[in-house]
Simulated assay, not measured.
Amino acid sequence: MKSCLVVDDSRVIRKVARRILEDMDFQVNEAEDGQAALRKCQQEMPDAVLLDWNMPVMNGIDFLRELRSSPGGEAPVVVFCTTENDMSSIVEAMEAGANEYIMKPFDSEIVQSKFAEVGLI
């Protein structure tokens, strides 16, 4: 079973994402900010990360840069899931190491199609 870390400061978003991912047969772990997500990745690296951009403590882009520079951090497939929709943000995310980008609000169909595009399902 593949694992996915859902990183978002919204409990509601984490809950919705968890339900979608569990229906896709993923083992799901959650983190409320980038710093908590880094700690979880250091304990056990997930196969995928569904990542919000705007969070307290450490935002998504800073988390992604830290993840990609850490041992084993190149392995997880990272899918940004955010309201940031301007082209410069998307380019910045991809240059920092994101594999794909989902706009909020999202649904099961969108998550499944993006995860299929990056080879997770």
Rank of each mutant, 00 (worst) to 15 (best):
A116K: 15
V77N: 08
S70L: 04
G60H: 15
D62R: 14
P56H: 11
I102C: 03
Q35H: 09
Q35A: 07
G73H: 03
V57T: 10
R14N: 12
V16C: 07
S10G: 02
W53G: 02
D33Q: 14
T83Y: 15
A37I: 01
R68W: 09
Q35K: 13
E92A: 15
A75V: 15
A36N: 05
M87S: 09
P46V: 07
R39Q: 09
L50Q: 10
F26H: 02
E32A: 10
M58K: 06
M94I: 12
D62T: 05
D107Y: 05
S108R: 11
Q112N: 05
S3Y: 03
D62G: 02
A37K: 01
A93F: 00
I121Q: 03
A75Y: 15
G34F: 05
A31Y: 02
M24I: 06
N99H: 03
P46I: 06
F106T: 02
V79C: 15
Q43D: 11
V78T: 01
Y101N: 08
Q112Y: 08
G73Y: 06
D33Y: 14
R18Q: 05
R11Y: 07
K40E: 13
I61V: 04
S3L: 11
V49T: 02
I110F: 07
R11L: 06
D25G: 06
S70R: 06
I102R: 09
E44Y: 10
S108K: 14
E32W: 08
R19E: 10
V6S: 01
M45L: 13
I20K: 09
V7W: 03
N29C: 02
E66L: 08
C81A: 14
M87N: 08
N54L: 03
M45K: 07
A17M: 14
A36L: 10
L51A: 12
L21I: 05
T82K: 05
A37E: 04
F106K: 03
L64S: 06
E95L: 12
Q43Y: 10
E74Y: 09
A98D: 06
M1N: 13
L50T: 10
I13M: 12
D62P: 00
G73A: 08
I13S: 11
S89W: 14
V111N: 02
D23I: 04
P76K: 06
F106Y: 03
N85G: 15
